[in-house]
Simulated assay, not measured.
Amino acid sequence: MTYEDLKKRIEQIKDPGFDKPFKEVNGIKKLVIGPTGVAELEIYLKDKSKHEQQVKIEIIKLVKIELGFPGIKIDFFESEFVPEGEKLIRYLAIASGKGGVGKSTVTANLAAAMIRKGKKVGIIDADVYGASIPNILKIDVKPLSSTEDEKMIPLVKDGIEVISTEFFMPPEKPLMWRGPMLGKMLVHFFSGVKWQDDVDLILIDLPPGTGDVALDVKTYVPRSKVLVVTTPHRNASHVAVKAGIGAQTIGHEVIGVVENMSYYLNTCNNKREFIFGSGGGEEVAKKLGVKVFGQVPIGQPQNGDYLYTEKDSAGKIYDEIAVQVMKEMEME
């Protein structure tokens, strides 16, 4: 049994999600036969959470029992294959180095701006310990319904679809899970949700820093890109650079920087007051080799809500950020 023979046999195995053989859906990412005869495989699956075990058993039976190889090691990843006629879902992770820079608020307002631009948008609230997207959007939390194939149907507010750990926890009860439990939840968030048809963009509200969730996103959504949020203050920008470099190190493309709380517009003299200093956004962008997409001032929407409208000055800035995001995500 040669390498080519083994590859041809594995290529004939079907991805149950597509109901097509791996050869037709680019399902084999890596195939190596080591010096001891052990086969190492990396496989793309459309629905990793649902079909990984089934496909794993099928491959092991073929390689070890039928073909007689001494051993096999298999890693599974989410498929990047898009069938002809289907639309590619784009993912943009919103990251920050530290908490308190307004990352979730930026995520929600960017989603609202994308809606104003005529795009269909969803949010994965992956900041599992500090989930705040439902509160920002003022979503009426209720049990989720599901499709016939057991995929969760997100809740919707103002056209924005949302999936969050807040939907699965009693009100005001803290989430106290270790890493493995978080991983299982994220698998459901990334492969067990039925988003609206023709959704254009899924925003991923990451927790601060470079921990498990940021690393898991690369596994579940290899093609996702990253937008970094910071404030002008040196402490925030210093750590935001680390978050951006961390994203680049594991293979994410950082597309830009948003500087939040950039200044306060004093209505008495119509001058900008830089309460948290200045230059943080530019520093982060320079070190990451990207642009500053926008500088959002300190303030509150005129309606007293968390979301700005196109009538608010900050809302217009978010509209400009959205245009740049669409360009970088090839959505124009």
Rank of each mutant, 00 (worst) to 15 (best):
E4L: 07
R9I: 11
I10M: 08
Q12N: 14
Q12R: 14
K14E: 05
G17E: 02
G17Y: 00
F18Q: 02
P21F: 00
K23C: 06
E24C: 12
E24S: 10
I28G: 08
L31N: 08
G37P: 11
S49C: 09
K50V: 06
E58I: 00
L62I: 09
F76G: 09
E80D: 10
P83V: 00
I89N: 10
A93I: 01
A95L: 07
G99T: 02
S104K: 03
T105E: 02
A131H: 12
A131S: 12
P134W: 04
I153M: 07
T165Y: 07
M169S: 12
M176K: 15
M181E: 06
G183K: 07
K184T: 12
K184H: 12
F190M: 04
S191V: 01
K194G: 08
W195C: 10
L201H: 11
D205H: 06
D212K: 02
D216S: 13
V217F: 03
T219V: 15
L227M: 00
N235M: 14
H238K: 15
V239D: 04
K242E: 10
H252M: 14
G256A: 03
V257R: 00
E259G: 03
K271H: 13
V290A: 07
Q295H: 11
V296H: 04
G299K: 11
L307W: 08
T309R: 13
E310R: 13
D319S: 15
I321M: 04
Q324F: 12
E328F: 10
